[in-house]
Design a protein around this nucleic acid. Structure first.
Length: 806
DNA sequence: GGGGGAAGGATTC
DNA sequence: TCACGGAATCCTTCCCCC
């Protein structure tokens, strides 16, 4: 081993203690690993690892980081005095800005269960209590208990290395059902202190107990009194202390309350620390497991604090600037969440090991790192973090991946790929997600990871859809390696680029906004929507100018913009329900019209054949196609959002409503009635016909976009099959796909209208929506079951349409 | 040349 | 035992379009 070190040392020119030794070394940044024999442990780890593919890859990764550091040092050497002075000024200014925004008013708590999986196993099998324990598989450990940690055994360690470190280690397989059940019990308690707590995993959560502590001040003692374990009579008379915690952790501090009442009654105080102590006490009473907690003015600090007195302890940073700065001063950067071994190593190369040093070298960091990274570092150095626990963060991707023994067979690889797509499709469908980007992740037997992504023109969520993209990506990699086989040890599939909640709700909100328009402030309108609308409009004008026969658009566009931006207004609205142009109406009247339209469509159409609905007109096909219909409120020849006070404002918040104005190739409407637009890439296009009050309207649409059941160059010819609406299930008396399309759209929109109706009714009791709405031939329940049947029918129609085209 | 999006890799827990 | 995960997000780079 020493020989290996020496070779590496000479190769890398680094001091002992750095280089691969530290790169591969045990990460002892974990509670329960203090005072262990690092040197001995690291030798064992290195000896067990060396020569393996994993080790080779780690070596490669470390060299890459070293190269990054070298590059950074070169950059550093080139910094001039002047640049540095300027950076110092900027850092000073930014620091002052950040200081001004410092919020010490929240009481944020981070609670972390101690060695959770291992603790659950020890609780359920007390004979394990005094033995070193690893929970996981024979390949990799998920976690270990504190006995095992003394041997250097820790989470994410390969089991064979753990066994070398601790030959007596007992391995217990994971049992997620048990952990989930226990976690649910703990979360019930969390919810009593903060109903909106943010779970990070089964064993970890952030809580904002500001309100709880405030209310707690006036609580009588009886509301702050809890009793020792009622289910265990033998514990009743035992003085509350480590006795209760089953000695899971030796020498651990306990959650001992400040006051012990008679007969096992425990009274807690009113301050934040007492509240958290009480919470931990209750967790322990309920689950027989201990938790540690950190209390601080923000999430970053709370997280660091929860580790401070682990296990079974808590730590609080008072809500004072000086207390925060004192705490942060000597805090090793590696303790900060978000700083891992790469960042640690890079900062270490600059002589930064603590948060105080992070601040001292702020100017340097601003010159060497990206703005994002630098801002992050500066915030850490000032002890700043998020004071708002964001519970509404939307998921950005979903993936599944699997590691396996070497796989070289192409057939097997495609089979696995499909399997993963199936698993992922199930997961996506559980959350009702659809995404546009499919990514395949491949790790070869040398541990080299590659990802290949494909962004589609429409959203996907089913196994077939995902696999269609994933198999192409996989095939490309197989072909790339050919004639060598692609030797894999891991494959994963990810879907991202979800249709955002905003987009999903845009239609709903935009229509609701009609009902609520009076509540919106005009100030809000101009603030949010003005620039967007103007840009969208200007862009549309540019497109129009480009298509006119007049001289080059680049020359003309500014003039056209100017002329049109300053043209007298001629306003009208297109009703999003009946699609009729409404001229000469003020907002009040227009809203009234929409109300009436909605009411009539809503009450009539669900009880009658939807094909008889009078709604006619335009609609925008979106990439989401059938899944996200969008109604259009068209504002023509108006250059500012002023007319939209109330109505347009809300729509502006959801730009997709105006997608047609901004997306070349999609239809836009003018006051003249109809126009034809062509895409830049006309080869991809099919014309889609629309009818508007008897005028034929032609627009271009990317065939891959939402035209699922309408893609046809010139409409169906004679002899085409009867068209049955997949929503209302009624045969349509037309062979014109455009008319058929419109019918289906109306049917689809009614589902949305139904929801909106309900929402609006709840806000606006006076609006007479029908309570018993239903689609002809389908019960309300059946309407909700439509999607799976619907997809099959649509696929069937697509096949027919394409065959007709062919 | 800049903005924005896509792709791929890096990083973290 | 026979040999280093899975999931998600962030960051950087590249490329296209205006």
């Amino acid at each position: 081993v020493r020989g290996v070190f020496n070779v590496l040392k000479s190769m890398e020119g680094e001091d002992e203690g750095d280089g691969l030794f530290s790169w591969m070394a045990l990460n002892d940044n974990k509670a329960g690993m203090e005072g262990i024999n690092r040197e001995k442990i690291n030798k064992i780890i290195l000896e067990a690892s060396k020569g393996s593919k994993f080790y080779e890859n780690e070596l490669k990764k470390e060299q890459q980081v070293n190269q990054r550091i070298e590059k950074m040092m070169l950059q550093k050497a080139q910094i001039t005095e002047q640049q540095f002075r300027k950076a110092e000024g900027q850092v000073e200014k930014l620091t002052a800005d950040l200081e001004r925004g410092r919020d010490l008013g929240r009481v944020v708590v981070h609670v972390d269960m101690d060695a959770f999986y291992a603790a659950v196993e020890m609780r359920d099998c007390p004979e394990l209590k005094d033995k070193p324990l690893g929970v996981g598989s024979w390949r990799l450990l998920s976690t270990s208990n504190y006995h095992a940690r003394k041997f250097g055994v820790r989470a994410a360690m390969p089991t064979f290395i753990a066994k070398k470190l601790c030959p007596n280690l007992i391995i217990v397989p994971l049992n997620f059902d048990k952990y989930r059940a226990t976690s649910a019990e703990v979360r019930e308690i969390f919810a009593e202190y903060d109903p909106n707590f943010l779970p990070m995993s089964l064993d970890e959560a952030y809580l904002d107990i500001t309100d709880h502590v405030m209310h707690r001040q006036s609580w009588p003692e009886s509301m702050r009194t809890y009793y020792l374990h009622s289910g265990c009579s033998e514990l009743k008379e035992i003085k509350y202390d480590a006795d209760l915690s089953l000695d899971l952790f030796e020498d651990s501090p306990s959650a001992s309350p400040s006051v012990s009442g008679p007969a096992g009654a425990v009274v807690f105080g009113t301050c934040a620390e007492e509240a958290v102590r009480e919470m931990r006490f209750r967790i322990e009473q309920k689950t027989m497991l201990t938790a540690s907690a950190g209390i601080a003015p923000n999430m970053m600090l709370a997280k660091v604090c929860s580790d401070k007195n682990k296990p079974n302890g808590q730590y609080r940073i008072p809500a004072e600037r000086q207390a925060v700065m004192d705490f942060v001063k000597n805090l090793p950067i590696r303790k900060v969440p978000g700083i891992g071994k790469v960042t640690e190593k890079m900062l270490s190369a600059l002589g930064i090991k603590t948060c105080a040093e992070l601040h001292q070298k702020g100017a340097l960091l601003s010159l060497l790192f990206s703005e994002t990274s630098f801002h992050h570092f500066l915030q850490i150095s000032l002890g700043l973090g998020s004071t708002h626990i964001n519970r509404d963060g939307e998921r950005k991707s979903m993936s599944t991946e699997r590691t396996f023994a070497e796989m070289s067979s192409v057939e097997e690889q495609f089979r696995l790929c499909r399997e993963l797509c199936g698993d992922l499709a199930n997961d996506l469908q559980k959350e009702g997600l659809k995404g546009r980007t499919v990514t395949v992740k491949l790790k070869n037997v040398n541990f080299e990871v590659k990802t290949r992504a494909l962004t589609l023109s429409s959203v996907v969520s089913t196994e077939e859809e995902i696999f269609a993209a994933a198999k192409d990506l996989l095939k490309a990699e197989i072909d790339h390696m050919s004639p060598q086989p692609l030797k894999l040890r891991l494959m994963g599939v990810r879907v991202s680029g979800f249709v955002s909640g905003d987009e999903k709700k845009s239609l709903q909100k935009s229509i609701i906004s009609f009902f609520q328009s009076g509540r919106l402030e005009s100030g809000e309108t101009s603030q949010h929507s003005g620039s967007f609308f103007q840009k969208a409009h200007v862009r549309r004008l540019r497109l129009q100018a480009e298509q006119q026969e007049s001289p080059g658009p680049s020359d003309q566009a500014p003039a056209v913009e100017h002329a049109l931006l300053n043209a007298p207004r001629k306003e009208y609205f297109t009703c999003p329900v009946c699609f009729q142009k409404q001229e000469g109406m003020d907002l009040g009247k227009f809203n009234q019209h929409v109300d009436e339209c909605l009411t009539s469509v809503y009450t009539a159409s669900w009880e009658q054949d939807v094909s008889s609905c009078p709604a006619q007109g335009d609609y925008i096909r979106t990439e989401e196609g059938l899944h996200h219909r969008q109604l259009q409120v068209t504002n023509v020849d108006v250059t500012e959002p002023k007319i939209g006070n109330g109505i347009l404002h809300t729509s502006m918040g959801h730009s997709s409503i105006f997608a047609a104005h901004t997306m070349p190739g999609l239809m836009s409407q003018t006051s003249e009635g109809c126009e034809e637009k062509t895409s830049r890439n006309s080869s991809d296009l099919h014309k889609v016909h629309y009818c508007d009050g008897g005028h034929q309207r032609t627009s271009s649409s990317d065939s891959k976009f939402g035209g699922v059941y309408s893609v046809e160059p010139e409409g169906p010819g004679p002899g085409c099959p009867a068209l049955i609406c997949p929503i209302c299930n009624v045969q349509q008396d037309t062979s014109d796909l455009a008319i058929f399309n419109r019918h289906v759209d109306i049917c689809l929109n009614q589902g949305v209208l139904q929801e909106i109706g309900q929402e609006v009714v709840s806000h606006t009791p006076g609006i007479p929506f029908s309570a018993g709405v239903k689609c002809q031939g389908l019960s309300r329940g059946a309407v909700k079951r439509i999607p799976s049947v619907f997809i099959f029918i649509l696929l069937f129609i697509i096949v027919i349409v394409y065959q007709l085209n062919a």
